[in-house]
Simulated scan of single mutants.
Amino acid sequence: MNTVLHKADTRGNADHGWLKSRHTFSFANYHNPERMNFGVLRVLNDDQVSENQGFGTHPHRDMEIVSIPLEGDLKHKDNMGNETVIKQGDIQVMSAGTGVMHSEYNNNPDKAVKFLQIWVIPNKQNVQPRYDQITLDTEDRKNKLQQILSPNADDAGVWIHQNAWFNMTNLDQGKEITYNFNDSENNGVYAFVLKGDVTINGQKLNLRDGFGVWDTDKLDIKADSDTEILLMEVPMSL
């Protein structure tokens, strides 16, 4: 088993006033040659956008972009004709492919919106751009794993052009569960702690810590307090 630990306070930090962001991997003005990616997981940004502020229209291509709202509502608009609002419990995915233009704004007039922005390098280039979002029942992740993303359009959650699976779980203190890899030969799992404290394969983790594990076939997870975790299983080879 191989592991990498990224403590919360070692992440890159960007404060633009209207935007406060913590970068697990190199992004924008934060460059760390030892933090370029975890396999095909290229970006994990922990963003907070002030009320009535946001990202103006900007381009992407050849990237799978996943947004997971944590608090508040985020308004999305793109050149494919989509104009939507995503909120806690929703998962949004955009395959940039040959190129898209989009904007993201805080849809709340009186509070910040907090969300994760995740980029996964796709296994197919120049695909037709696509957008999707779904609303999940967060009770379905209470003391068990809830799949939110996979490579399969007919499976639970959203899908992307990559051999990747994302799961979320909310665990009560003392609860233990096991995550079994979908592809242990090629994939690793990056765990990101959204709430509380947890021990994964013997490693104690706290709020906003990240922990990558590969060359194994399962994760043994024990909640040291009430906790919420995002598990991202991705190929380790680019």
Rank of each mutant, 00 (worst) to 15 (best):
R208D: 06
N107I: 00
R42E: 04
P59R: 12
N167L: 07
K222A: 13
D62S: 01
D90F: 08
R42D: 04
K218E: 10
F166I: 00
H6N: 13
D132K: 04
E34R: 15
D215N: 15
D172A: 11
E228D: 06
N180H: 06
G72V: 12
H60C: 06
D197F: 09
I200C: 04
F166A: 00
K144G: 05
Q203V: 06
A164G: 06
N123H: 03
T169A: 10
Y105F: 15
D197M: 14
V100S: 02
F115W: 09
D47I: 04
P122T: 05
I200G: 03
T98D: 12
V49W: 02
A14K: 10
N52L: 13
P235F: 14
E104L: 07
R35P: 03
E64Y: 01
P151G: 07
I200R: 07
N52Q: 15
D78L: 04
I200E: 00
D209Q: 13
K20T: 07
A156P: 04
I134V: 11
V100D: 01
A96L: 09
I229F: 06
L19K: 12
M63G: 01
N206I: 04
F181H: 05
L230Y: 06
I221L: 02
R35K: 14
G54L: 09
I221Q: 01
K111V: 07
V40C: 08
Q146N: 03
D47A: 03
H76A: 05
D132S: 01
S21W: 08
D217I: 01
Y131F: 13
S103P: 07
H161W: 14
A223Y: 11
M232I: 12
D9L: 15
N2E: 14
D110H: 14
N108H: 05
N79E: 11
N187I: 10
G97F: 09
D140G: 06
S103Q: 08
